[in-house]
Amino acid sequence: MAFVVTESCIACKYTDCVSVCPMECFYEGPNFLVINPDECIDCSICVGECPVNAIVEASAIPLDQVHFVELNQTLSQDPRWTRITSTKTPLTEHEKWREVKSKLHLLQK
């Protein structure tokens, strides 16, 4: 079962996870990252790298975040979302949004 980027990533977009991914299966949008589940090899290396604990195994995802399984699949296939393979600076206001839990309304597709 692949790993999934969840709501905690929205408006922060830390990319620490990207630099350790051996399969380069992360894709980025304007203010969020996703994992392509067809490319993820379930190694879990990225999980510990996320400073906001946004990466979860799909089979263990909390019920209130289960919609992110499909969202990762869909957005990773969207041609506007591009593969990201190296670390970048987080979004400008990442500290403001780091502890906020309910951010789905902020997601920019």
Score class of each variant (00 low, 15 high):
L75N: 04
V66S: 11
S86W: 11
T82K: 15
R83I: 14
S86F: 12
F68G: 00
E57L: 10
R83F: 02
W81L: 04
S86G: 00
L63K: 13
N53V: 01
N72A: 09
V69A: 02
S76M: 07
T85S: 12
V66I: 15
A60C: 05
Q65Y: 11
Q77I: 02
V69D: 00
V52E: 08
T82H: 14
A58M: 06
P62K: 13
I55V: 09
E70R: 13
V52T: 14
Q73M: 05
Q77E: 13
V66A: 09
S76H: 06
I61E: 02
I61L: 08
C50F: 06
T82V: 14
A54V: 11
C50M: 10
P62L: 12
L75T: 11
A54F: 07
D64A: 04
P51S: 10
A60P: 00
L71G: 00
E49C: 01
T74Q: 11
L71Y: 10
E49G: 00
S59M: 08
V52I: 14
N53T: 01
H67P: 00
D78W: 10
S59K: 15
Q73A: 11
R83C: 03
R80V: 06
P62G: 05
E49R: 11
A58D: 06
V52Q: 10
L71K: 15
Q77F: 01
L63Y: 05
N53P: 00
I84Y: 12
T74E: 06
R80S: 09
E70D: 14
R83T: 15
V66D: 07
A58S: 15
Q65A: 04
S59I: 10
C50D: 02
V69Y: 02
L75V: 07
E57A: 14
V69N: 01
P51C: 07
V66Y: 03
A54P: 02
A60V: 04
C50V: 04
V66P: 00
R83W: 04
L63F: 08
S86M: 06
I61R: 10
S76G: 08
N72I: 12
S86P: 00
I84E: 03
E49A: 05
S76Q: 08
D78I: 08
Q73H: 13
Q77A: 13
A58C: 03
P62D: 13
D78Y: 12
I55W: 05
H67N: 06
R80L: 10
C50P: 01
A58F: 09
E70C: 01
A58N: 03
E57C: 03
E49N: 01
T74A: 06
E70P: 00
V66N: 05
D64V: 09
Q65F: 08
P62N: 14
Q65M: 12
V69M: 06
W81N: 01
I84F: 11
Q73F: 13
R83E: 08
S59C: 04
I84N: 04
P51H: 07
Q77C: 04
S59D: 13
S59V: 13
V66M: 07
P62W: 12
N72W: 13
A58K: 15
S86T: 13
F68A: 05
